[in-house]
Design a binder for these strands. Structure first.
Lengths: 104, 104
DNA sequence: ACTATATTTGACACTTATTGTCAAGTAATA
DNA sequence: TATTACTTGACAATAAGTGTCAAATATAGT
């Protein structure tokens, strides 16, 4: 089970690429990429797309890993975490088939 | 399928309580409570606990509704939403049984 | 319509988070 | 020691979230 950062770093190293090279392609400071790979910062969706391109990763799969990472860390400390996910799933199904009430 | 705001408003009305009364008990401006009930603002956990008390709602259940609401709205627009939840569940199980890598 | 009460709305100042940039730092290697 | 790769932390700029308040709007009773 890898974090998004681990996935990115492992793939980058396997391809023999440098932080400098990847960050240039993604058009961000290499300090930011370094932090992303160590899970100190979260990439934006735009960054993820570019990263998927240069690292030859599946874009959708990467996005899924990213969002699920975020959610996992968000609720891992709740002892009702798995119940939360079940309810969330129901709510999503409901929202997808109904007009969406606004939530800020 | 109710949002957290709908749950709170319905229960308040059923109990015949006014915004003013509930917000006083929770110790927040009634404007905030009004917005919470219409899903314009999110309550804090402290607010939720107080709300559960005065509205005679189950505290844990309310928390579950709250967090799942948040997650549902967070990913409802992703077309990979249900896959995300599945992966998130696996990650949580993993995180709960392992030392937790840091993520900001 | 008038009054009183309940709720909603928006502007505002304030705090807190998140962001990108940069320079100086460490680490490893030749 | 010189070079390259990476990390760290401080900084300013921006965005996001928060509580407060007063004015606007609704709702109901007389």
């Amino acid at each position: 089970m890898e974090t998004i950062g681990q996935i990115l770093r492992n793939k980058r190293l396997n391809l023999g690429l440098l932080l400098r090279q990847v960050s240039a392609y993604v058009d961000i400071d290499q300090a930011i990429l370094s932090k992303i790979e160590r899970n100190e910062r979260k990439p934006t969706k735009e960054m993820l797309e570019k990263l998927a391109e240069i690292l030859k990763l599946d874009k959708d799969e990467l996005l899924i890993q990213f969002i699920s990472d975020k959610i996992a860390y968000e609720i891992v400390d709740e002892d009702c975490a798995s119940k939360v996910l079940k309810v969330a799933e129901k709510k999503i199904k409901y929202l997808k088939s109904n007009p969406i009430p606004k939530l800020t």
